[in-house]
Amino acid sequence: MGFLRKINFISYFLLTIGSILMFLPFLLMIALAFSPYEKSLTYPPILIPSDVTINNFKEVMTSNNFFRYFFNSLVVSLFTTFGQIITCSMAAYAFARLEFKFKNHIFLLFLSTMMIPTQVNLVPLFSMMHKLGWINTYFALIIPGLFSAFGIFLMRQYYITLPKELEESAKIDGCNQWKIFWKIFFPLSLPSIVTLSIFSFITSWNSFLWPLLVINSDYLKTLPVALASFKSSFREVINWSLIMAGTLISVIPSLLIFIFGQKYFISGITTGSVKD
């Protein structure tokens, strides 16, 4: 018993040190975001702000289109999430519960797109957006993201576990597949929908390269693109306090979603990898 306690003490000790290292960048961000600009130019660097101020937040929100960036990120992430819930759950239902020709072939085709690094598609997709006149529009930010092979896979894993009696009794009651899906299966898959929503929201909220390519106008920038351009536009004299305030705001939504939906997120990550 004494041995066990010792082991556990060592575990706590090591994990605490690790946690401090992992959390340190966030701590420095918080400290700087709440400190006046002059404090960012002090040495040693501050870990705990001595004169707390919210001026950085005020300034970052008023000095540029920050609300607009936040709004853009929110619109894009919400539409993407909503779209993926619809398209993925519908397709997943078909793959899990219906029998049709080429079912496995199409499923394999979908899965195979997951193996291809997204960067391979960048040039043709960009030129497609260019030809459609979608550069600098919400369409370019949202539409290509409405579909997800991963989402289909995730939802399918859930639909195949539901009992066969569900659709049998519904069929006897005269429901067609459309009704069976929307009235029975879709509501039942709420846990998976939550998992998928968290995934697609956070992925979309954090995505950078694609918005960077298709958006030039300041008014349509998403938060990550805006933050990146803050950093480079202030390159002469970087106002770190201001940047940290903006970064802190940008991190909050995905943080909240993760903290409240942690269980679903972790289950989504491990689906099909460990449990299978």
């Binding site: 992992m22 990550p224 970064t247 940008s250 991190v251």
Partner: peptide, 15 residues
């Protein structure tokens, strides 16, 4: 330990 995973790489890189 999971916090950085859900933080955007842009935010993380800025930090």
């Amino acid at each position: 330990y999971f916090l950085p995973v859900i933080t955007s790489m842009i935010a993380g890189s800025i930090l």
